[in-house]
């Protein structure tokens, strides 16, 4: 079963990558010159107090010993305790993960819609001014990173024409009590559309900023792939059957053109998730990235570690899911 073997090989490679990432983060943050413990204690604390607290967080041992202890904890699901927030890292991180996931997925959906529409229009109107305009637009969108698009959106929809919220995840005045942190999802299930609308209004600009570069990439790759497919015999055959150009593109060319685009979108989506770090900061959105920057500024070693490992996990899982989707969609691989 070569399909299963490929998946297992990918899983093994994923574990190696995660382990390597853990080692690097662990070593890098322990070279930090400032003493995080000293920052936690009120001025006037004795050397003895500092030593005791260091021992409490295990910071008096060698890096290697600390790593073994940390890894042992991770295996049991214990990522340590945040120094600045004094709560288990796992709880903190899992509490913020839904906000970041919702933002990333909303951005992905926006990017697929905009990029897909641009690619389809460009293919339908290929070799015309419309296609040239789409090329220029996507070239521009791709040249400028999400951070700058975020700032431009703030100016457009926060200042010039203030229709959306420019900071936070949800208005504090709203009264609701949800079971999960997946607010957007849960608000629909509970039919709280006031909460839903407020969330969307907060998420619109940050997710659009994240989506713009990805939409440009999707537009370029998918259009190129579609245009190549349009020359193939089965597309011509479909034309002779009486289909319009638009349905030839969507019915015959698209299912094939999507496959090569999909693998590339996977990598690009991990870049998008990486982009949430600064975008969440820019829009004061209470997600993982915003928490991560605070953790770095506060030198909260256990929390930084936990967040970075979670990001690495997220990235590798996305790549794995993309690979499996590709295999599932491609009949040649499915039956191999």
């Amino acid at each position: 079963m070569p399909f299963l073997r490929t998946i297992l090989a990918r899983l093994a490679a994923t574990l190696v990558t995660l382990f390597g990432a853990a080692v690097i983060v662990f070593v890098v943050i322990r070279v930090v010159p400032g003493n995080p413990i000293a920052m936690m204690l009120p001025p006037g604390a004795t050397e003895d107090d500092i030593a005791r607290l260091q021992a409490l967080y295990g910071l008096d041992k060698s890096i290697f010993e600390q790593f073994v202890i940390w890894l042992g904890g991770v295996v049991r699901g214990d990522f340590g305790t945040s120094i600045s927030l004094r709560q288990p890292v796992l709880n903190l991180v899992l509490g913020r993960l839904p906000a970041t996931l919702e933002l990333s997925i909303m951005a992905l959906v926006i990017a697929v819609f905009i990029g897909g529409a641009m690619a389809l229009t460009g293919t339908l109107r290929r070799d015309t001014r419309t296609e040239a305009a789409i090329d220029v637009t996507s070239g521009m969108a791709l040249s400028v990173p999400d951070f700058l698009w975020g700032l431009i959106l703030i100016l457009l929809f926060g200042v010039l024409w203030p229709v959306f919220h420019i900071s936070g995840r949800v208005s504090p005045s709203l009264d609701f009590d949800f079971q999960t942190q997946f607010y957007l999802f849960e608000s629909v299930l509970r039919l709280r559309f006031d909460v839903w609308a407020d969330l969307v209004s907060h998420m619109f600009m940050p997710s659009l900023a994240l989506a713009i570069p990805l939409a440009a990439i999707i537009s370029q790759l998918l259009k190129q792939s579609l245009k190549e497919t349009m020359h193939l015999d089965y597309v011509t055959l479909a034309r002779t059957k009486g289909y319009s150009e638009a349905s030839v593109i969507t019915r015959e060319a698209l299912p094939n053109a999507v496959l090569p685009t999909l693998t590339l979108i996977g990598v690009q989506f991990t870049f998008l998730i990486g982009g949430t770090v600064i975008i969440e900061r820019l829009f004061s959105y209470e997600g993982l990235g915003n928490m991560a920057i605070d953790a770095v500024i506060n030198r909260d070693l256990p929390l930084i570690q936990g967040i970075v490992i979670l990001f690495a996990l997220l990235f590798t899982v996305v790549n794995l899911v993309v690979d499996m989707t590709y295999a599932a969609l491609n009949p040649r691989l499915r039956h191999a």
């Binding site: 990432a21 983060v25 890098v28 943050i29 770095v296 990235f315």
Partner: peptide
């Protein structure tokens, strides 16, 4: 290649901030 894979698993902005925190 393995190193590149590991690097790809870090969000670049967070990595940069982390490094500045370490390096000053």
């Amino acid at each position: 290649s393995r190193l590149v894979d590991i690097w790809m698993a870090f969000p670049p902005v967070l990595f940069a901030i982390l490094l500045i925190a370490v390096l000053g």
